[in-house]
Nucleic acid binder design. Structure first.
Length: 482
RNA sequence: GGCUCCGUCGCCAAGUGGUAAGGCAAGGGUCUGCAAAACCCUUAUUCCCCGGUUCGAAUCCGGGCGGAGCCUCCA
């Protein structure tokens, strides 16, 4: 059984076979950068990041393209409010976005084209569509795509033109022949960024950019086009219509992209989280209080196509869980140091990869990891001296855990360092002063030496009231924030 | 109204025809000066409801009920 992916076009899981054996072209619709990234972005791009990581782990050479939409109505509007240059503002939010995605452990794409830098391809593509009769310029500076010329229009979203007609509307000032037609090029309005074109100065419509950028960076057909569920219609549907019309004599959607994948939403109180509803968390806000890897762990706990109902408590749980994982790794590393590695790859690591083969089932992998970690702790805590075999097995565990973790984008930090970072953050969150804790621990150590357990327990209780939990171990007392 | 999707233990969540993973929480235990951590044990004869198909269904089909999304910008 090879890699199975859920293809929105097929409506089911299909076996994945790249167009060119051994190579994968992946295009992910990137953000429109008019504000900081929110949790929904993190969810989405973490999901596709796992896809990239796993395909690469399966020895496929992946070319990962993810655009920035930096020319858009919302950007122009927001920049006007702030009295900023729209492209410059977009560039700033793009940087902010990359910073956030780095923080949740996402690999950078191989190519990250921007609309503002892709104008020649966009204009050229529109020109081809006009030439072939799929697009028309009514003379007001706009260019529209004629959806009725494309027989497969709406197939991805399982919509037909008549279903769509009821909800369609035409803005005043547009000169569409059909209400469902959409703009490929918008004639410039005063004060807006504009580029030259055969139809006059203007800027691209929303959908054409992605078509142009995929064709420029991946060619056609390419393997996987991915994005949020909300893009199925109209964005991806329109992309298919444009692209296939431009490149495919038979107007076949599959001549553009072979597979379409879509991630589910983050919800707050069972409702879609979105900028327009105003119920969103920015990644930056969340990361001020919580570890980026913890957020990633939380996101990986739900299959990428399912909705995640987010709450702050869940993120706290994930952070504690991350602490457990790193504590286990630290323990295993300590015991296994210098041991001869058990040469056999753990069955559970193989099982994890198989689970990822099945439409990237990260939640199942976390279940598998949980059992492996429990077993590792049991082995590490077992009484008696560790044999070389025991230690080699723990070395194996740690290696495989990091290797599976690499496909999920977690557990790549040095364990002790990660634990210190988690503790520092948790202490800051609770307003705990580490120096004070250390001082109290020293006092308590003295009391314990004197067998003054009354005083010792008083310190424990005092710190516990602050949220500090003490752990007495063979090599002294350590502390953590509960 | 049309089109998608979802409903699994108190909470989170896999599983989509072969007899319910995992995490959190809870209870009991081992360990500990006491704890904490870790580990062990316990906790869904049952998967929203009602029919049907099948030797067999949480998984397939039909009908309800409940929730979400898209059809307008959105990851």
């Amino acid at each position: 059984m090879g890699i199975q992916i859920h293809d929105t076009m097929a409506g089911e899981k299909v076996e994945f076979h790249p167009v060119v054996p051994g190579q994968v072209g992946l295009y992910v619709c990137g953000p429109t950068v008019y504000d900081h990234a929110h949790l929904g972005h993190a969810r989405c791009y973490v999901a596709w990041d796992v896809v990239v990581r796993h395909l690469r782990a399966r020895e496929l050479v992946v070319k990962y393209v993810r655009n920035f939409t930096d020319v858009d109505d919302k950007i122009i509007a927001r920049a006007a409010e702030r009295g900023e240059d729209p492209i410059a503002m977009a560039a700033r939010f793009a940087d902010s976005f990359l910073e956030d995605m780095d923080a949740v452990g996402c690999l950078r794409p191989d190519v990250a084209p921007r609309v503002s830098g892709s104008m020649p391809g966009i204009v050229d593509l529109i020109g081809r569509l006009v030439e072939k009769g799929f697009a028309y310029a009514p003379g007001n500076g706009d260019v529209y795509y004629a959806v009725r010329k494309f027989p497969a229009y709406g197939r991805l979203a399982r919509r037909n033109l008549d279903d769509l007609l009821s909800g369609a509307r035409v803005d005043p000032g547009e000169s569409k022949r059909d209400p469902l037609d959409f703009a490929l090029w918008k004639g410039a309005k005063p004060g807006e960024p504009a580029w030259d074109s055969p139809w006059g100065k203007g800027r691209p419509g929303w959908h054409i950019e992605c078509s142009a950028m995929t064709l420029e960076h991946l060619g056609a057909p390419f393997d996987i086009h991915a994005g949020g569920k909300d893009l199925v219609f109209p964005h991806h549907s329109n992309e298919i219509a444009q692209s296939a019309a431009a490149i495919s004599g038979r107007l076949a959607p599959e001549d553009f992209a072979r597979h379409w994948m879509h991630n589910g939403f983050v919800e707050i109180d069972q409702e879609k989280m979105s900028k327009s509803l105003g119920n969103f968390f920015t990644v930056k806000d969340l990361l001020r209080l919580h570890d980026g890897e913890a957020l990633r762990l939380l996101l990986l706990g739900t299959h990428y196509r399912h909705p995640i109902n987010f709450s702050d408590g869940l993120l706290g749980d994930a952070e504690r869980r991350l602490g457990y994982l790193y504590e286990t790794l630290e323990k295993a590393d300590r015991i296994a140091e210098g041991a001869a590695l058990d040469p056999v790859v753990s069955p559970w690591a193989e099982g994890s990869r198989t689970a990822l083969d099945d439409d990237f089932n990260t939640a199942a992998v976390l279940g598998i990891l949980a059992e492996a970690f429990t077993a590792a702790n049991a082995a590490a805590d077992r009484k008696g001296k560790k044999t070389p075999t025991d230690r080699g097995a723990l070395a194996r565990f740690a290696l495989d855990a990091r290797s599976v973790g690499a496909e999920l984008g977690i557990l790549q930090r040095e364990a002790g360092e990660a634990l210190r970072a988690l503790r520092t953050r948790a202490a800051a969150r609770r307003g705990i002063d580490p120096a004070l804790v250390e001082a109290r621990i020293a006092e308590r150590a003295e009391a314990r030496r004197a067998k003054d357990f009354g005083r010792s327990d008083a310190v424990r209780d005092e710190l516990l009231a602050l949220g500090v939990v003490l752990q007495d171990g063979a090599s002294g007392t350590t502390w953590k924030v509960e």
